[in-house]
Design a protein around this nucleic acid. Structure first.
Lengths: 350, 350
DNA sequence: TTGTAGGCGTTATCAG
DNA sequence: CTGATAACGCCTACAA
């Protein structure tokens, strides 16, 4: 009848579990579980006892165990090309917030526009048995495609929209953006319009935009001119492009009258270089960017640009996922379309 | 001896498990497990068989189960005030990348400078049994403090540094930043120097900066002047401040000669408002920001500002965590200090 | 170097 | 409305 030291558990984190709570509250462990997942089905009096026990023990349900037992973790993975740029931050923010509001957590990784890195991120996520995955764009390598299609969970492609594609897509048409910019300049009377491509080769969405531009040019019988800078840093690339296209064009070429840049970083570099060289913007050369970064309204002249619906994309992507998961009551169904529009912000540069 | 349909599992995701791989490869499940965790300890010939089986089945280890069994998940939670702002994005990026490189995933949530939201994010993270947690700053509510201190895992506070504080801190001294700005302006001969506070009340780090400014002012026998804008939007708040302080000060007050802004957004708003009103910057009023946002170098005049080491903070915070976790071999120990310096970027505005 | 036994904390299942 | 039992998929401990 000696009282030995309590047999210490040999494994485990030492933190309270459902069983500890159940014992203290004098109920079955499963009732504690239900107290968290379906509070309505637990009698009020027991709920109170459980609540007290939870508080006393500082109990936090172990989501890893929960995910294991129920075969669906409450995490959603998102692979984004670049967290720190000005582009996707809003999307991450609204995506994360919308998920959090419904009890899901965001797992984040970045691909730096590399299909291989995207693949390994997706692979890593899959290990968490995520409830869903979100990726950016529709360009993935073969392995990623397969991973996504066989994952058996909702997959959303963001920041792009192509008809006739299986995964849910929430975004806009980059092609249409290219057209939009070209049409805008054409309507203003510009004819010698160039497109400055992103020097970052992996950014295929920018290629879609230049395709749109090219189509509009040909539609009007104009010769498209796509310039691909050699410089890597965006500001430098923009400068280089403006110098080649507008300030000191090659011998036989006339300077262009307007430039569409693949993004606002390039545009800012180009705009400042133009100013420094005494180029009158937009009189001698108009400029249109893409992205509506924070600084674009602050430039002199302020930058005419196209604003992608970053916040909406994140929010709607999350809502679509939650709908697929059956988390959202039908009454709250969001009626917005998945194909969003980009707004052309008319400022001083074009 | 009839051959009934294979008894289907009644639970589970239906995806391959270690056991399936083991069976196909003709080895024990534990060997498959070791193949992933300690590849060196599995014979080459078996490794090859396992590799083949893994590929054929498309097996992905279940991290939730792994974390459950080993009592340490390979996730690290980070609560950040704001994902979409220009401030923390670099930190998230390098933090995430550094963790990924060592097999850890980032769980992200945002607090919007609200201590309550921070608390609930930390609470939600704890359910994942994260290997470690990172938060921003040293200001938390009582409940968060308790959660963090009893979590029994490494906790890193980022973007701040105070001597004599228990959790690991990786950041800089906001106080020192306030002093740095004030000293710089004083040395340039400015005397009537004001500090424009963030209208966002929750940003206590900005208060630290104004404290530093105040100390330097008093040290030189000058009267500190701290302006708190009413406008909420940063650009508007900056404009409001410049109008009150430099363009149209209250009757009995002299216009100030220099302004330190709590951040570059405020500074940009102030700078543009000053220009519009014909204020000569820096001749009539010098301006210093904080943050070195992307647009700061693009403003006219370009903005003198203080650049916090955002990328370094993220990387070093992750390294400190990995060190605590014993993941990094001692030989790779990073020798950088946790107290980082902020660089004053001298441009045209001051 | 490899295998066996059993537990990690939760929830699905089914019976009361 | 509540509870007992057995998974979920992996890993620690120990043995061979």
């Amino acid at each position: 009848m000696s009282e030995p030291t309590a047999p210490r558990k040999r494994r485990g984190s030492g933190r309270a579990t459902v069983h500890d709570v159940a014992r203290l509250a004098g109920v079955g462990s499963i009732t504690v579980s239900r107290y968290f997942t379906e509070p309505g089905r637990v009698a009020a009096e027991r709920s109170a006892r459980i609540a007290a026990a939870v508080k006393e023990l500082g109990y936090v349900p172990n989501l890893a165990a929960s995910g294991l037992a129920s075969a669906h973790g409450r995490v959603v993975g998102m692979v984004i090309p670049n967290i720190s740029g000005p582009i996707f931050a809003n999307t991450i923010q609204t995506f994360s917030d919308t998920l959090n509001r419904h009890g899901y957590q965001l797992l984040l990784a970045s691909s730096y526009f590399s299909a291989t890195k995207e693949e390994s991120a997706v692979r890593a996520f899959l290990g968490w048995k995520p409830a869903a995955l979100a990726v950016v764009g529709r360009f993935h390598n073969r392995a990623t495609e397969k991973l996504l299609s066989t994952a058996g969970i909702p997959v959303v492609e963001t920041w792009d929209y192509q008809p006739r594609r299986k995964p849910i897509q929430v975004g806009y048409s980059n092609n249409a953006v290219g057209e939009q910019a070209a049409r805008y300049l054409y309507a203003k009377g510009y004819r010698r319009i160039a497109f400055v491509q992103n020097s970052l080769a992996g950014d295929l969405s920018a290629v879609d935009r230049s395709d749109g531009y090219e189509a509009v040019m040909r539609e009007h019988g104009l010769e498209p001119l796509i310039y691909v800078p050699k410089a890597e840093a965006p500001f430098d690339a923009g400068r280089e492009a403006v110098e080649s296209l507008a300030i000191a064009p090659a011998k036989r070429a006339k300077p262009v009258e307007a430039i569409i840049f693949a993004n606002d970083n390039l545009a800012a570099g180009g705009l400042l270089a133009g100013q420094r060289a005494g180029l009158k913007i937009p009189q001698q050369c108009a400029m249109v960017g893409f992205g509506d970064y924070a600084f674009s309204q602050l430039l002199l002249p302020s930058l005419t640009t196209i604003r992608p619906p970053g916040r909406e994309i994140g929010e709607i992507a999350a809502l679509r996922i939650l709908e697929q998961l059956g988390v959202l009551p039908a009454s709250t169904q969001d009626t917005r379309l998945n194909l969003l529009a980009c707004e052309l912000i008319e400022r001083e540069s074009a």
